[in-house]
Amino acid sequence: MTDQQAEARSYLSEEMIAEFKAAFDMFDADGGGDISVKELGTVMRMLGQTPTKEELDAIIEEVDEDGSGTIDFEEFLVMMVRQ
Rank of each mutant, 00 (worst) to 15 (best):
V37G: 04
S10V: 05
G48Y: 01
E61G: 15
Y11V: 13
K38L: 12
T52W: 01
T2F: 02
E7V: 12
V37W: 03
A18G: 13
D25C: 05
P51M: 07
D28T: 15
L77I: 07
D30C: 05
L77M: 09
D66P: 08
Y11K: 10
G31A: 13
F76R: 00
D34M: 03
L40Y: 06
M16H: 14
Q49P: 04
I71N: 00
F73Y: 07
E19C: 04
F76M: 03
D3L: 13
L40G: 01
E65W: 15
G41R: 09
R82E: 06
M26T: 15
G41K: 09
E14T: 09
I17Q: 05
G33I: 00
L77R: 04
E14N: 07
A58G: 06
D64Q: 07
G69C: 03
D66N: 09
D30N: 13
A22Q: 08
E15Q: 12
T42M: 08
K53S: 15
K21W: 01
A22K: 15
T42A: 11
E15G: 06
A58V: 13
S13A: 10
L77V: 12
S36W: 05
A6E: 09
I59A: 05
R9E: 10
V37L: 13
I59N: 05
V81I: 03
L12P: 11
D34F: 05
G41Y: 07
M79Y: 11
E7G: 13
D25M: 09
V37S: 06
M1T: 11
S13K: 05
T52H: 05
M16L: 11
S13H: 10
A18L: 13
E7M: 07
M46T: 09
E75L: 09
L77E: 05
P51R: 13
E65I: 15
T50G: 10
S13P: 09
M80I: 07
T50A: 01
E39K: 05
R45N: 02
A8I: 11
E61F: 06
L47R: 01
V63D: 06
R9W: 05
R45A: 14
D25T: 07
P51F: 15
V63Y: 11
F73W: 09
A6D: 15
E7A: 08
D64L: 10
Q4D: 04
I59E: 03
I59C: 04
V43I: 14
A29R: 14
L56I: 15
M44H: 00
Q83M: 10
G41E: 13
S13Q: 06
S68A: 05
F73P: 00
M79I: 05
E61I: 07
L56P: 01
A18T: 14
R82F: 04
